[in-house]
Design a protein around this nucleic acid. Sequence first.
DNA 1: CGGATTTGGGGTCAAGCGCAACAAATACCG
DNA 2: CGGTATTTGTTGCGCTTGACCCCAAATCCG
Lengths: 388, 388
Amino acid sequence: MTDRAGTFDGVHRRNLSKVLGHVHLEGPLSRARLTAMTGLNRSTVASLVAELNAQGLTIEQAPDPTNRVGRPSPVVAPDPRVLAIAVNPEVDAITIAAVGIDGGIRARERIEVDHLPTPAETAELVASAHDRWRTGPLRDARIVGVGLAVPGLVRASDGLVRFAPHLLWSDVPIRAIVETATGLPTAVGNDASLGAVAEHLFGAGRGVDDMVYLNGGASGIGGGLIVHGVPVGGSAGYAGEFGQNRPGIDPAGDRRATGGVLEDEVSRARLLEVVGLDHGDEPALAAALAAADSPAVTDEVERQLRILATALCNAVNVLNPSLVVLGGFLATLAERDLGALERAVAEQAMPAASEGLSIRVAALGENRLLIGAAEIAFADLLADPLGR
Amino acid sequence: MTDRAGTFDGVHRRNLSKVLGHVHLEGPLSRARLTAMTGLNRSTVASLVAELNAQGLTIEQAPDPTNRVGRPSPVVAPDPRVLAIAVNPEVDAITIAAVGIDGGIRARERIEVDHLPTPAETAELVASAHDRWRTGPLRDARIVGVGLAVPGLVRASDGLVRFAPHLLWSDVPIRAIVETATGLPTAVGNDASLGAVAEHLFGAGRGVDDMVYLNGGASGIGGGLIVHGVPVGGSAGYAGEFGQNRPGIDPAGDRRATGGVLEDEVSRARLLEVVGLDHGDEPALAAALAAADSPAVTDEVERQLRILATALCNAVNVLNPSLVVLGGFLATLAERDLGALERAVAEQAMPAASEGLSIRVAALGENRLLIGAAEIAFADLLADPLGR
DNA sequence: CGGATTTGGGGTCAAGCGCAACAAATACCG
DNA sequence: CGGTATTTGTTGCGCTTGACCCCAAATCCG
């Protein structure tokens, strides 16, 4: 691999990347704003934009009527024809979407399955959706790659699914499988980590450089870290697995139940049980929790919030983030009393670390994972718009 | 702040920084090796090195007799006259050293005090050492700045010591104080975080990009993180405070004692107590531990190791480092049975996360903090050798 | 002692960005 | 409604800087 950093070509590519990255993240921007944001010269930005246009990555539009003095600046927007295919296999369904580099979702299919999806089946479904879209509604699109959000441990180096407990995948080279089935470059990531990426770039964590994201799923608690504005993968890509932590006990709380790991104690199943639901999606659980006010429910909610607070404190002490984002059932749990959770964290964590901290609920909806998956599919293109 | 990234000037400065950084970290290097390491052209490296020489930052030496075919390549070494002053105030003494950009320690003073050192006193001692050295033994040196390793929470943005529990400093603008006393640019960091930096660059963590460092001090447990090869400060710079974490309990262990925070349970004081020492430095404790084999001592050691293992697991699950480095009394504790600690972590942490993990004992000795402190003093120069 | 090999040195080349002057498009003001 | 101020695109030039090429130097090996 030639190390282009430090050469002129490298500068040029980085500048292209910077410009494309800005319009990708912020949406349409005037060239004037781009010059301000990049710190480059007007003429430089002009030539970079022209090059991106020629590459088919951006389009220039008529200037916005801005009601300001001066010559209006053309607006440069991401070319909506540039797409990635985002995939999220789950136990009961596989969701496949075509996501534009402008953030828009052009197509979306949720394919319910009555059995656990196999890797081959997943790849087939992706390839078939790709074929249908390519010859049908998205005929003039340019599909640059596939991104998969997998509920399990994903080795970053080669896109191997080490272990996905609920899909019962283990040591599955899903990246290679999907690449051969579709012929498209493919990227794979852990679902919760990609949720963190999505919330960081487009959701509750916009503009925040140090963030912890915790997602409560049906089967456990995962998460992702953003440090210095960069997603943290760790040495192999397994970072963010909060669920298996032992959070310790809150001295004020009940000592009985704290022998287990976080996701044993703070769990969707326990909440469903205490409100008397058998199955139920997130809105159903939220509604049931809001309706119920029996002491048993309140106790369980408070117990889980206490344990969650302790786990958050551990993360806050070590990482000193400025924001914690909660998604999934952790969001519904926290929303019952966000203030109490914040107070509990402030009490237990180091005062200095918690004073700049806010806790928020995830802003992106059910498309969060697809957006995150598309992001890693776009990553190469965004990092080096000219490729190779 | 002008954003020079992306301009040619920026490239040049980054290239200078890259070359200087390599000789700083690796010691004397031949120009041929530098071209290989930077990926730049031979002629480019030649001109960069010439510029660094002119700046008085590096010196070129006669080629090493290398016994290899070909024209010998001149060796470029960091100029040993470039120094930083490293300072470490503690409860009973202030250590001040002059550290070369080549890593050598040119001078070192440990000034014992019979009372808690005040910020003003610390600054005075630094200024006086600076004056004596500047007019005496280090007359021809170029002192580029001061770095302080403070045992407490340090706000990164302005070098304010938020709270140093053992020094009883609170909201002390130590950076400004030392800057006015010495007239030198000053950087401040948390002692354990700087220990992590030192071990990462020159010690047990050389070449490791994802590392967790935990330091057991007389008064608590601190630490530092290296993620993607970069020290993690968090939003305000308080990251790495493992001591206040609640590590949870090992189900196999004693549940009684786990209500407290990590540094209550895993502590030097408890070890001293169980071996029957009143005070004692690290070697004394290590010797006493090695000598004693009463059941009480073994039990306490094992108990602390179990709790430490759980705390490490939490960090390993979340950060997926490839290395954990233990310093201070945690090193002596772990050295009693490093294998057992590794096994305990492997058992409790996620299998995938722990399989690429090794646990090591800190390699740098008592100069670790001084090296780390010097590093932040050199940081500006290394990042931009031309300054401003 | 001469050929092979590796590397430094100097001159030239080319690429890319900043800069400045000019042109264009808009708002503001009388 | 027209002139002026303001902002920004456009164009051409120049400067900086790293790459490239060729030759010289230094070492090893036969």
